[in-house]
Nucleic acid binder design. Sequence first.
DNA 1: TTGCCAAACGGAACAGCGCTCCATATGGTC
DNA 2: GACCATATGGAGCGCTGTTCCGTTTGGCAA
Lengths: 196, 196
Amino acid sequence: MAGGPAAQGAPRKRADARRNEEALVAAAATVFVRSGVEAPVRDIAAEAGVGMGTIYRHFPTRAELIVAVYRHQVEACAEAGPALLRDSGTPAVALERWIELFVDFLVTKRGLADVLRSDDDAFGALHTYFVERLVPVCAQLLEAAAAAGQVRSDVGAYALMRGVGNLCIGSDGDDRYDARAMVGVLVRGLRRSEGA
Amino acid sequence: MAGGPAAQGAPRKRADARRNEEALVAAAATVFVRSGVEAPVRDIAAEAGVGMGTIYRHFPTRAELIVAVYRHQVEACAEAGPALLRDSGTPAVALERWIELFVDFLVTKRGLADVLRSDDDAFGALHTYFVERLVPVCAQLLEAAAAAGQVRSDVGAYALMRGVGNLCIGSDGDDRYDARAMVGVLVRGLRRSEGA
DNA sequence: TTGCCAAACGGAACAGCGCTCCATATGGTC
DNA sequence: GACCATATGGAGCGCTGTTCCGTTTGGCAA
């Protein structure tokens, strides 16, 4: 959990190992854009110019590789929560803006929402990471808005995030479906009383 | 499209073929309950006591087998639309009840919602069947409710059904997420003005 | 500089999947 | 009872993810 540079226990990696790890994250990012998050592992290894063994040595599960690729953006999203709560006019507005941020993130990552909801255990860690990092943030915003009487209080943060994530599934390649719009409808259903 | 019994062109199947087809649908239904809709084809063949070739002879794509298993229930759902519109107090209530029907259907079929949204082409026909059969029904209800000024009119029937379907994905095995409740929130967001 | 070895690597090999293909078996008909 | 189109079964192919182990190499110590 201590993310700092070279904590005590860390035996310091070899130079080539570090190089390959970075190359893999970069390659994965490239391939994810080209073929989606569910791209074959071999493709990623080929793109990085390494063997199969190397990929599994650095990222024992697919989820860890995906997390490594998107960690920065997830962190940014998580950190935006308190800031929005501070800067926005009302908690409800902060919540809505934060959800927009989250949706923008998901929608622009081909297949990420799909895989986030996969029942495959290989992605379980991915789901866990997202939940642990983002649900508390969402909960803070949601509870503030509920306390202010602006949204109903019978929907939990986890359920809300799952709902939003689900609505983002398959959001590309079908112009009859606009994930952002549907999330908007969902969020609207969250509001308490006064219309518009 | 003419579903009637033995239309002209149909060359009449052999008795064993018909028996196997029925056995396959029954076996598939059993396996779907046990292992979900994405169960291995081999499992279904084994359950039915037939070979791989037989399954593909009768159902060239997975989607057709799934459709065969659930056709009755999908038809019932489709036919319930006009009836609800006739019998319910208002179009909005009819729409809400119909969506509840649809959600109940999806939620009780393990993995069906997931596969309905799969980007795998093998399931494309399944998606198409659901869309062709149910979207028009939904459109009728939705337009009636919109015409009555009870729901907003900027959400299409297709988008609504996709949204509802998406919310049902992964609806089992996670007691923190209640698909029915989230669909309720979505539908609430559809309403126009007056709360409660 | 050189020698050493743990660390790291590469890719062959294995298992599980969907789907195809064709030699074989069988039901219905003459 | 014989014939053959229809139907069957399962081996086989291609594509996945994942493991395993012989080979290579970076970094350190002599």
